[in-house]
Write a protein that binds this DNA or RNA. Sequence first.
DNA 1: AACAATCCTTGACTTAGATCAAGAAATTTG
DNA 2: CAAATTTCTTGATCTAAGTCAAGGATTGTT
Lengths: 234, 234
Amino acid sequence: MEDRIHMKISDRISKAPLFNGLPAEQIEKLAQICLDQKFEKGRELFSEGNEAKGFYLVLGGKIKIYKLSLEGKEQILHIFGSGEIFGEVPVFAGGNYPASAAAIEQSRALFFPRISFIELVSSEPAIALNLLGILSKRLRRFTLLIEDLSLKEVPGRLAAYLIYLGQKSPGLQTLELEINRTQLASLLGTIPETVSRILAKMARQAVISVEGRKIRVLDRKALESLAAGGKGAI
Amino acid sequence: MEDRIHMKISDRISKAPLFNGLPAEQIEKLAQICLDQKFEKGRELFSEGNEAKGFYLVLGGKIKIYKLSLEGKEQILHIFGSGEIFGEVPVFAGGNYPASAAAIEQSRALFFPRISFIELVSSEPAIALNLLGILSKRLRRFTLLIEDLSLKEVPGRLAAYLIYLGQKSPGLQTLELEINRTQLASLLGTIPETVSRILAKMARQAVISVEGRKIRVLDRKALESLAAGGKGAI
DNA sequence: AACAATCCTTGACTTAGATCAAGAAATTTG
DNA sequence: CAAATTTCTTGATCTAAGTCAAGGATTGTT
C-alpha cells in the first residue's frame, strides 16, 4: 500500500515544470524529503512574517497568496493551482514569508523543507535553471500586475483578467470565473461592489454577458481596447 | 593599456553580488563575454517588447526600469545603481523584455549576452544560487510594491519610501532624494503635484522639513505610523 | 421545504487624488 | 549675467471608485 502512494507522489513530482528533465533517482530523493499535506477550505498555510521552512508544490485545489493591510483589507497576489509552486522566495532570499497563504478550496500540496532542497539544487544545475525560469516568469507577472495597478483603472484590469482567463482555456467562448466577487475584487485591487458595477456596465454596453460566474465575451475587440487602454480609456 | 582596462572590468565583476564566490577563471571568462557600454542621460537601453539578447550589470550612474501606458504615463518599477543587475528576466523566461530601460544620468554598464551566460550558469551552480537569491529578493521587493500600490494611499507610500531611503544611508538625518519630483511620483504611482502637496502637508505637520531635494525627518514615529497605516490612515 | 448564511447587486453619498492652470523657483545655456 | 528651459508649488475643479446601506439572489443545512 505504502508503495503505491509513494509511486503516485514521485509521479506527481516529475510532472511539475520545476522538476522537468530530472533523472528518476533525483525525483525519488525529492519524494523522500517532501511532506504530503491536505488543507480544508479557508485553512491558512502560513502568515506573512512567519519563518520560512520550505516551499510548496500544489497537487490539487487552489491556494491564494495575499497581503493584508492593518484594517484587514486583502490584496491577492496570485492564486496557485495544480503543478505550481509557491513560498520559494525565502528559501533563497532567506528570512520570512513576504506574504500569507490560504486554501480557497479543499487543497493538497507537497511541502519541501528548505535545507534538503538547497542541497539538491546546488548539485543539480537542471533544477536551478528550471527554477530560474519559474522565478523569472513570476517576476514578469508581477511586473504586469504593478503596471495594471498603477497605470490602469479598474475596468481595464478587469478586462485584462477576462482576456487572461480566455487564454487559459482557448476555444471556449463562455468563461467561468472560478472565484467569487470578493476574491476577484481582491485580485484586481478593488472591492466587490465595484466589480459588480463594472460587470453590469460592460453587459449594458454589450461587451460581455454575465450570468453568475459564467461570462460570455460578446465583443472581443471592445474588451481588448479596454484592457489595453490606460487611465481614462472608457 | 588594454590589460589595465581589462583588469578593472574583471575587478568590477567580482564585486557584484551576483558573482560572489566565483573562482578567478570564471570571472575572467565573464570579462571576456561582456561588453562595456556607456549611456548619456536620457538614453534608452531597450524598450518593452524588444527581443532580449542579454542582461546588464551597472558599473556607474542610474538606470530606471519603467512601463509606459498608451497615453505615455510612466510607472518606474525600480532604479538600479552600481553593482546591480537588470534585464535578466527574459534571459531565463525567454522572449522579450517586459519593461523598458533608460539612463536617468550618465551611466556605465556591462552587457552579458544571453547564450554565453546560460552556458556558464549551467556549469556553475554557485552562480545559479546567487541568481536565485537575487531574483527572490526582487520578487519580495515587487511584492512590497504591489502591497503599497493596492493597500496604501500615496502619503503612506511616500513615507515608506523616505524610511527606505533612510535605511540606505543610516546615521545621516538629512536625506537626499536623488531624483526629481516627476521620477519620484512615477516611482510611487502618482503625479508630481500630489508629491509636492503631500511633502508640504507633512512639513506643515512637522513630520519632516523639506528644502529642495533635501529632507530632514523631524518625527520618525509619525513617519513610521504613516508608512505602516493602510488606506485612510491620515 | 424552510431556514440560515453567504453572495451579489444597486443606490446615495463621500473623498483621494487626478487634471488643468498659472506663477515661483531653480537650473541650464548662450 | 540675462534669457531660456525645466522643475516645483499652490489653487480650483472634476471624477473614479470607495463607503455605507439595504434588498434580492444563491447556496447550503437540518
